[in-house]
Design a protein around this nucleic acid. Structure first.
Lengths: 225, 225
DNA sequence: GTTCGCAATAATATATGATATTTTTTGTTA
DNA sequence: TAACAAAAAATATCATATATTATTGCGAAC
């Protein structure tokens, strides 16, 4: 019973990636193959396949002949990632609103409903389900752009979103009522097919999230690399 | 004497990637590990590392338990790639023109000079150096956006550019005087810091290239997947 | 006679442990 | 303290074993 996925490689890949994104593997940390072998219970070659994949996605840095490291974090990098998320997600949102059909609207309200429930819970003080919250956040944003008709764009956006998410998980804070309101506004604008309004809210949403994360990074001198 | 790069992995990676981009490995072809082992003279594990990397970059498709395939081509995919190139390259060009210094201008004129020389040669009938031409084309576009101040953006653009290039190599045609004129216009606009003009020419440049490639694909029914 | 289902076999992919190379650390001497 | 050699640790690569998928051949049913 090794999850639903069949191969050791795929399973371990997801575990390692999750551990990078959620900070269980610290930024900049050396990834010694032998240690990983013990931690994840996979062979060196299998782990190397995984690390190579993660390196080309940018979650890991590969240094020729000197092994692998968790990708370091920096404020500059965060700004780059946020700007890229704005560029990709806004562009995808525009075509998605234009092309979205009834099915799309259905996905939208469904995703927002689930997200909104968790957000309410967090607003009332229950911060126990951060991972679930972030998953629903991802699903909502994903639903918004899902009708953009470009697999390539969706794939690129997916990785960028995950990189952005990593920074959010590192500072571990919740922007509360504001973020929830922005999500509501985006849903409304999308259903009304008000492209410019939707894009506007989305850009603000990301920019505010960026500032929020940046100032949280400034608070603790850990990330000042 | 195995090139300048040290490891077998890196060298073979570049060879395989080149063979995908230049069509020596046909779109959709099965990549049997044992055959590859003979062709490239690297072990199966090393090759799997390479194919995993190429898969996450989108040059190869990995099918769980059924191996690897060269990424198929299609007109839809080409359109996606071209649109993504427009999105990324225009955005990068804008900030690059804004932020570029004298060093940047130097890189620009140097890159254009080299490109222009090869283009002249091709215009006068000498089509013997397509690979060099494409390399200079890449270097020129790269130089234009090199001052955009985002490693993340440059990396993403790099891969998209290579995917676009692959389609151009598959149809193997030369757009001639027009493309050369557009390159000249871009150089001029960039040096004059005329952002909108530069972006305008760039977008046209890519759109015309797209149409050119699409119609070449329609000519031969090979790519009608 | 053809098609379908099913076993046996071959081909292939995945995963592992062992070996060769390279880098890093340690310890000794000038 | 610096330079350098030897030892240790870690990476890169390979050959091989295991698990999965694809193919072939055969017999039963239509």
């Amino acid at each position: 019973m090794t999850r639903l996925n069949s191969t050791v490689g795929t399973n371990t890949y997801e575990r390692v990636k999750r551990d990078v994104i959620f900070g269980d593997l610290a930024p900049g940390a050396k990834l010694k193959l032998d240690s990983l072998r013990k931690t994840y219970g996979a062979s060196v070659s299998t782990l190397r396949e995984i690390l190579n994949r993660l390196a080309s996605e940018g979650f890991v840095v590969a240094a020729e002949q000197r092994g692998f490291f968790v990708k370091p974090v920096s404020q500059d990098d965060l700004v780059e990632v946020a700007n890229l998320r704005i560029l990709l997600e806004c562009s995808a949102l525009e075509t998605s609103i234009r092309a979205g059909d009834t099915e799309w609207e259905g996905r939208l309200v469904a995703a927002h409903h689930k997200l909104q429930l968790v957000e309410q819970k967090m607003l009332s003080g229950d911060h126990s389900q951060k991972e679930l919250w972030k998953r629903y956040d991802w699903e909502f944003h994903q639903a918004l752009i899902s009708a953009c008709n470009s697999q390539n764009l969706l794939a690129l956006h997916g990785t960028i979103f995950e990189k952005y998410l990593r920074y959010q998980m590192l500072v571990l804070t919740f922007r509360g009522e504001n973020a929830a309101a922005e999500h509501r506004d985006m849903l409304d604008a999308a259903l009304e097919r008000d492209t410019t309004a939707a894009i506007d809210v989305l850009e603000t949403h990301i920019r505010k999230g960026l500032e929020h994360t940046l100032s949280a990074m400034n608070q603790s001198p850990l990330w000042q690399s």
